[in-house]
Design a protein around this nucleic acid. Structure first.
Length: 551
RNA sequence: UGUCCGAUAGUAUAAGGGUAGUACAACGGUUUUUGGUACCGUUUGUCUUGGUUCGAAUCCAGGUCGGACAACCA
């Protein structure tokens, strides 16, 4: 047990339970409903549940909470499994709440037999009307005191498909005056003539969340059932069912869910973005989904590190996006090879370079643990450089190119700007330089020191690529909290496509697993939209930029 | 005018009656063939009012503020 780092409150509970001998083996579960793609908030829960059993022994189950057939799909089951594996976790058992439908049905019968559940034929509106409000007690349903025999008979008919949806429901008989609304005779089974993604048409009644989750935990001998804060008030019911059913006493603990600035996290809202085509899909690189982050270029390690750093507590929180960015930069800085790409090109001509071309050596990654190796970069008298690296009238503290100014071309020579060309509209079209032959990178004998180093690509050797730049999805840090529709706060500049950027030839071999630092521009990865003749790169994140822009 | 949960720098998270610490962010500096990285430094905090105590972020009471709860969703 680590003493270095302080424990979060759940680790404390687990350590106490293990040390006191309350449990011999820690068993947790990650229980998504397969009704959407997993997002970074799920990653927090995944890291917590799987992390606990990695640290303390025991195991974690993956259990799909598939009790509502109308929203659930096998597509989601598959994507969720892929995302969990990609994050680097593996479950002991792959389980489904639907595996327990027979057992759950038996639990319902047992409750009826104990006089603790009854069939109600009130309409949804009637039930709501008798439910009371948080400040007023509810009233008993007229059907509350049906006999056990009658309840059993009707419940059997419900199961046998003799009734239409909504005609009857099964309710637990608890206390209509409870201060906890969830204890006011909660509905535990409803009729739904719908095809289930796994059980097909075997069932036409399905258990509600509260009558499936805790029981499933219990069946699996889950020792610590960890969920988010909105389930706090469900805990009383969770315990009530376990007590009345006399089954394994799993215990529920709640932590605060993750909120991230400038994005939304609810599956409902993410689904809206997908359905209304405001993003290209669940894996759009702007989405906070695991698949979106993966496509954007985030690594599993960076996401695990992020989840570690945000901590686990019970206080509502809003994490700044900058922490996620820090985590991915920290990882990529050590692993991504440095290459050169010019996103917004302008021509640079070296007037005194008459060798034709030559091959220079580039260091792949000075930060890599193994040294990174080197590669060949072609150089010639006509280059593409970044338009923003030249200023006709230089600002104060300008290190880059300007009339008369010198900069180093990364991995190459020092050049001096002698002239520039403008078109009839006054736009600069070409920069003309001379180079200093003795200043070659690695064997510089010129004695000249320059402040600025810029990246470049040889025009004759460059390949073109499409580059997609991403920014935060919403202009508001808290789109959920704004007035009106959250979609009104979508950032119109969340995606910028540069169809014709120039990349160095070595990048033509890029593959989908590669991570690259485009020197001075950020971290990039190949997008799956790439074809043999058209490479597409996604910007994962910019480099940290401490340069104060003039003006 | 209910019940439950919570409140520590800008954002998170520690300190479990005894020095308020860490990270990110921000700001400044050193190094640098990336205005990157690395390294160093600076700024900023216990919601409030009482109480218990030699001593309170921590325990107690009241208040304030924020969140959850009235789906045949999970």
């Amino acid at each position: 047990m680590s003493e270095e780092k302080s424990l979060n409150f759940i680790e404390e509970i687990v350590e106490n339970d293990l040390n006191s001998g309350k449990y011999e083996t820690l068993v947790t579960r990650f229980p998504p409903e397969p009704n959407g793609y997993l997002h970074i908030g799920h990653a927090k829960a995944i890291c917590l549940n799987f992390g606990l059993t990695q640290k303390y022994g025991g195991y974690t189950n993956l259990r799909f909470d598939d009790t509502n057939p109308v929203t659930e799909k096998t597509e989601y089951v598959n994507s969720q499994q892929e995302d969990i594996r990609w994050l680097g976790f593996d479950w002991k058992n792959e389980l489904y709440a639907s595996d327990y439908f027979d057992e759950l049905y038996g639990f319902a019968v047992k409750l009826i037999e104990k006089g603790l559940a009854y069939v109600d034929e009130s309409s949804a509106d009637e039930i709501a009307a008798l439910k009371g409000t948080p400040t007023e007690p509810g009233q008993d349903s007229p059907y509350r005191n049906r006999s056990v025999e009658e309840n059993l008979a009707i419940f059997t008919k419900m199961k046998n498909g003799e009734f239409a949806d909504g005609a009857y429901i099964l309710r637990a008989k608890i206390d209509m005056a409870s201060p906890n609304m969830l204890m006011r005779d909660p509905i535990i089974y409803r009729i739904k003539h719908a095809e289930h993604h796994r059980t097909g048409n075997k069932w036409c009644i399905y258990p509600m969340y509260d009558f499936a989750h805790g029981q499933s935990d219990s069946i699996e001998n889950i020792t610590h059932s960890i969920c988010t804060l909105e389930y706090v008030s469900h805990r009383e019911l969770y315990d009530w069912f376990i007590e009345k059913l006399e089954i394994f006493p799993s215990k529920q603990y709640e932590f605060a869910r993750l909120n991230l600035t400038s994005t939304v996290m609810s599956k409902r809202k993410l689904l809206q973005l997908v359905n209304e085509k405001l993003v290209t899909g669940w894996d759009d690189p702007r989405m906070p989904t695991i698949s979106g982050l993966r496509r954007r270029g985030f690594t599993p390690k960076s996401i695990r590190e992020f989840c570690e750093r945000i901590g686990i507590a019970k206080r509502e929180n809003l994490i700044e996006l900058s922490l996620l960015e820090f985590c991915i930069r920290e990882d990529l800085n050590k692993t991504a090879n440095r290459v050169m790409a010019v996103l917004d090109p302008i021509k640079l001509v070296i007037t005194n370079y008459d060798k034709g071309s030559e091959e220079l050596i580039g260091e792949n990654n000075p930060e890599a643990e193994d040294g990174g190796g080197t590669r060949v970069i072609p150089f010639s008298n006509e280059l593409w450089i970044e338009r923003e690296d030249f200023m006709e009238v230089p600002a104060k503290k300008w290190f880059r190119l300007a009339p008369g100014a010198m900069v180093r071309l990364k991995f190459a020579y020092i050049v001096k700007c002698e002239d520039f060309v403008k078109d009839e509209n006054g736009n600069i079209t070409e920069i003309r330089c001379t180079y200093i032959p003795e200043s070659k990178s690695g064997s510089d004998t010129s004695g000249i020191n320059v402040k600025g180093t810029i990246h470049w690509v040889s025009a004759a050797h460059a390949k073109t690529a499409e580059i997609r730049l991403y920014d935060r999805l919403f202009t508001s840090e808290t789109p959920d909290a704004e007035e009106g529709d959250f979609k009104d706060y979508l950032n119109p500049e969340s995606l910028t496509v540069l169809p014709n950027a120039y990349i160095e030839p070595a990048l033509a071999d890029a593959d989908l697993d590669g991570r690259y630092q485009f020197i001075r521009k950020g971290y990039f990865c190949l997008d799956k939209d790439s074809t043999a003749d058209k490479l597409v790169f996604n910007r994962t994140v910019t480099l940290k930029d401490t340069f104060k822009k003039p003006n």
